[in-house]
Design a protein around this nucleic acid. Sequence first.
DNA 1: ATGGTAGGACGCCTA
Length: 266
Amino acid sequence: MPFKIATWNINSVRLRMPLVQRFLEEYQPDVLCLQETKCPDDQFPSAAFRKLGYNYIQIHGQKGYHGVATVSRRPLSVVEKRTFCGIGDCRHLSTEMEVGGRRVLIHNFYVPAGGDEPDPEINPKFRHKLDFLKEMRGIRPDQTADTATVLVGDLNIAPLETDVWSHRQLLNVVSHTPVETEGLENLRSNGGWIDLMRRYIPPEEKLFTWWSYRARDWSLSDRGRRLDHIWSSADLAPFLTRVEVLRAARGWERPSDHVPVIAEFG
DNA sequence: ATGGTAGGACGCCTA
């Protein structure tokens, strides 16, 4: 059952459709999960995806902000578009497909960034992020004889010391504070999720998926963070054959500040 | 220590 899934925070799917096309043509994942599509559902560039062979398209989008979408070359059906924290933000989409006679559930997440001030008492965005994480504990891998689960997306947290350019300098910076990193690691391990990126790439190695637009030279300074993740239920982990973080995509013309991450199973 | 850039939509929010 060779199977390839990718996740990419695209920061406006309409603006970056040429980059998406290049990525799909070169890497041909079976499934691509997008975040920050910033696109109402009726304006989603579905025809462009179909032209590329991605005929199965599920979207949960809104005007201006957030928005997730999952596109596939194989039949894909929607399971749930869940809203979190009693807010209507489009930040989650779960779909399912059949892979080698088995049902695979795919959760696509865009976790709130959390603002600048890492204090929930004075920053409602950070409060929202922590509440969102708490509610995410309710998402458990569905793992039975005929079902497996993958969870991907921009989780906006870099959990390990090697997931940021400087652990010491980012300890009080939103995305790497202990309440976030411990919160995410706890919800992952308590849920029984496997961090597939770190199963393939040793945790001792620095690994980033995001570089700020504000750097003079993002590659030279290399002040990145690993904010994008691919998790799976434990039963899928032995079938993982490869993980790739497409660092080069950060250097493409008018890039997203995030790069695609790909996991392959065989 | 601070401010730096980008997108959506058109003054300002979000990242």
